[in-house]
């Protein structure tokens, strides 16, 4: 998975002089991203996987719920490329359908957590003082509330709804992001270029979002790529509580959990979901690293 040819890459020392003039920073970043083979690879894999999950089932001769009790636990074969599960259902079909859920949960819930966490953390870190204190104590409180109880209550009051899944996950996953962003913002708040921006009379939102956040993208992106697998697996736990996917629909987290219980007898039930899960995460990670490098303002000024 690691291509040796991408050594000595990319952005850190790539920034042709002509790009310095007249080209927007986004286009600039896009050019740098495109030269990062690993990032391109990651991006392509994610897109291909997403397309497969959405379109693949259309070409499958099986339904995700279609059981065949006479053909349970069959190993991979010509008719079932990835084998069948405990009800004789086609694993490939279930994996693709499950991918729709997992990718959606992984990306949307993470995006929710990312948005809330970054904005909240940036405001607290930049404002400091009493506002920061109150905001951080609220974070402490939310950390401590019992998650299981919270999820069950959500369902009791709002019924079961896939949107609640994002609320439930978003509600816990943004906390650490907020604390990381706050710490980073505080650490660069007193730096010269921020002081300079302030003395130029730029507005606070502009300072935060145009000057500070680009400078702390690294940890944000890294933590985001850490959040995605956590979110996808958390979905399996929420399904256990009754929120999340309803059987016979499945998700990667649930498939991996099922597979883990039978890894000795029917290893394909763990290996295939595990592989596709890891492939996705690796790809997102390469993409994330590439993005970080491409958007690195300082490196670009070399």
């Amino acid at each position: 998975m690691i291509s040796p040819s991408s050594e000595k890459l990319p952005s850190a020392n790539v920034a042709p002089a002509q790009l310095e003039h007249g080209v927007s920073p986004w286009l600039d970043a896009w050019h740098r991203l495109r030269r990062n083979h690993l990032a391109v690879f990651g991006g392509v894999v994610v897109i291909v996987l997403s397309l497969l999950c959405v379109l693949g089932p259309l070409f499958s001769p099986y339904g995700y719920q279609q059981t065949n009790l006479e053909n349970t636990f069959s190993p991979p074969s010509a008719s079932h490329w990835l084998g069948t599960d405990q009800l004789g259902r086609d694993l490939l079909t279930r994996l693709l359908f499950g991918g729709q859920i997992s990718l959606m949960v992984g990306l949307i819930a993470t995006a929710v957590a990312l948005t809330i966490g970054v904005i909240y953390g940036a405001i607290a870190g930049y404002a400091g003082g009493n506002l920061d204190r109150v905001m951080m104590r609220i974070v402490d409180i939310l950390y401590a509330l019992p998650f299981t109880i919270f999820v069950i209550l959500l369902m009791v009051f709002f019924g079961r709804d896939i949107k609640l899944l994002f609320v439930a996950i978003g509600a816990v996953e943004w906390l650490t992001m907020a604390r990381i962003v706050r710490g980073q913002i505080m650490s660069i708040k007193r730096m010269e270029f921020i002081e300079a921006a302030r003395s130029l009379g730029l507005g606070t939102p502009r300072i935060i979002f145009r000057h500070m956040i680009p400078n702390i993208l690294g940890p944000i992106i890294v933590y985001t790529t850490l959040t995605i697998p956590g979110v996808m697996l958390l979905e399996a736990f929420l399904s256990f509580l009754g929120l999340g996917v309803q059987p016979p629909m499945s998700s990667w987290g649930v498939l991996i959990k099922d597979g883990a219980e039978r890894m000795e007898e029917y290893p394909w039930l763990l290996i295939f979901p595990g592989t596709i899960f890891s492939l996705t995460l690796f790809s997102l990670n390469f993409l994330g690293d590439g993005l970080r490098d491409a958007l690195d303002v300082r490196a670009a000024k070399d």
């Binding site: 991996i256 595990g274 995460l281």
Partner: peptide, 8 residues
């Protein structure tokens, strides 16, 4: 390490 959950 990140891709392999504890229950696996």
């Amino acid at each position: 390490g990140i891709c392999v959950p504890t229950f696996v």
